[in-house]
């Protein structure tokens, strides 16, 4: 479903060009949950940014069902991302002046898709926040906020759910609870997911783990 071919990414620094990804190749099957692990600075987040179409590589291909993301124009890439990909961050990044429910329906509104708020309410109920629909992010705990972010990620029924250190800001117990919920929902909705993490325990729960080291995949 997702094919990554010879992906390279270089950043310019004051000391000269810095090659973060040195020609990466891998495939992800539909419905598969992949963990990308590695030390800090190994290029995990850079890779996720490229997969999400938020950044462009120097060379290589990212194919979603055969469609090369890098050959799409900026507006086409933006449209593709909006319709097919969802991102979940380490810090949940909810809009502080919107309620949990409003945060969840926002992606649908942006895409101009018809929606019933019942849809979002159901999702929030599924993540255990059925009674916190009208609460603002400041009134939610870190774990609860992350669950809202998961619900927001799921609302557009994406092809792929990309998560960047989703438990990074949570304590172990909360992190485990949130991820259990995450796996349940991803599997239940037969989604494909890529999780960037350095948490080995979390990586071991995924279908497969890809280790990034010195800009290369060391599977």
């Amino acid at each position: 479903m997702i094919e990554i071919k010879n992906l390279k990414k270089t950043f310019s620094t004051r000391q000269g060009p810095l090659e973060i990804l040195k020609g990466i190749n891998f495939e992800i099957k539909k419905g598969e949950i992949i963990a990308i692990t590695g030390f800090s600075g190994s290029g995990k987040s850079t890779l996720l940014g490229l997969l999400a179409g938020l950044d462009r590589p120097q060379s290589g291909e990212i194919l979603y069902d055969g469609k090369n993301l890098n050959q799409l124009s900026e507006p086409e890439a933006q449209k593709f991302r909006a319709q097919n990909l969802s991102l979940i961050f380490q810090n949940h990044y909810l809009i502080p002046h919107l309620t949990a429910l409003e945060n969840v329906v926002l992606p649908l509104q942006i895409l101009g898709l018809p929606f019933e708020s019942q849809q979002a309410e159901n999702l929030l109920t599924q993540v255990g926040l059925g009674d916190r629909l009208n609460h603002y992010p400041s009134e939610l705990s870190g774990g609860e906020s992350q669950r809202v972010a998961i619900a927001r990620g799921l609302i557009i029924k994406p092809l792929v759910l990309l998560a960047d250190e989703p438990t990074g800001s949570l304590d172990t117990e909360t992190g485990n609870k949130v991820m259990k919920l995450y796996f349940d929902l991803v599997r239940q909705n037969k989604l494909t997911s890529v999780i960037v993490t350095h948490n080995q325990e979390l990586a071991s729960l995924c279908d497969r783990e890809l280790k990034l080291s010195q800009g290369m995949i060391a599977e």
Binding site: P75, K79, A82, L87, P107, L111
Partner: peptide, 13 residues
């Protein structure tokens, strides 16, 4: 800025 970038990531042009 945070909101602008988040909305952009959520799909807004």
């Amino acid at each position: 800025a945070f909101e602008i970038h988040l909305i952009k990531i959520l799909g807004a042009d």
